[in-house]
């Protein structure tokens, strides 16, 4: 009885994520397949990494044989926000016993936002199902996308633009906040300068590192000035 209730409740709460993840997951799977990596790779990436933006960015890195150091640095900068998601849930997850590690592993943007949107305290059964269902939607979408792209006689050249579109959408959404607009200008500027100086093949990791340095320095200076 309780299990069915938990299942239905988790399903209801994750419905919006299901739409997003199935669609985006399919796009990811297709992009990956277009780069020459089939459904097994989609399954591996979506199960082990389970991070949307990073998964899109890792496709060109896989295709181009990018150095692992650059990959690590890129992964670090792209996913640094995940560091902060866990903060709000340290206490709640620690009460979940054996499920604790999976709850930590599966804390993505969308799962985090579902947790933040919960009206009140939910049972462990509901919490873990929210996390699990979200990952299942993502994995399913990825495999479907990879299968479709590999088997359909349709030429999907250009589908990797979905990554560009995704990042632009995220920026437009964030641009609604004033503080974010300045930060985005800094990030874009660092990237453009880095691109001009280092060329398209080498500029990403330095651009991200410099962005982090500039923002940290600005924070230090800002605090000193205020003191």
């Amino acid at each position: 009885m309780q299990r069915n209730h938990d299942r239905l409740r988790a399903l209801r709460l994750t419905l919006p994520v299901m739409c997003g993840y199935l669609f985006l997951g399919t796009a990811f799977g297709a992009v990956l397949a277009q780069a020459g990596f089939g459904p097994v790779w989609a399954l591996a990436a979506s199960t082990l990494v389970y991070a949307g933006s990073l998964q899109f960015v890792l496709v060109p890195m896989m295709a181009a044989g990018t150095s692992l150091l650059t990959v690590a640095l890129t992964a670090l900068m792209v996913n640094v926000r995940h560091l902060f998601y866990g903060l709000s849930y340290i206490e709640r997850f620690s009460r979940m016993g054996r499920l604790h590690p999976y709850m930590i592993f599966s804390l993505t943007d969308e799962t985090y936002s579902v947790f933040c949107g919960l009206p009140g305290e939910e049972s462990d059964g509901v919490m873990v199902r929210i996390a699990l269902y979200d990952q299942l939607y993502w994995v399913a979408g990825s495999i479907v996308g990879a299968l479709l792209a590999s088997s359909l006689p349709v030429d999907l050249t250009g589908i990797d633009f979905s990554m560009t579109a995704l990042f632009i959408v995220i920026c437009v959404e964030r641009a609604r906040e004033r503080g974010s607009r300045l930060a985005m200008a800094v990030g874009a500027a660092c990237a453009l300068v880095s691109l001009a100086l280092l060329g398209p093949e080498r500029f990403l990791a330095p651009a991200l590192a410099v962005t982090a340095l500039v923002l940290t320095a600005a924070d230090v200076v800002g605090k000193e000035a205020a003191a």
Binding site: S53, M77, V78, V80, R81, F167, I170, C171, R174, A175, E177, S180, R181, A183, M184, A185, V186, G187, A188, C190, A191, L204, A207, L208, T211, A212, L215
Partner: peptide
């Protein structure tokens, strides 16, 4: 940091 990274 996150919005800056996204812009980059």
């Amino acid at each position: 940091l996150p919005p800056a990274i996204m812009a980059a």
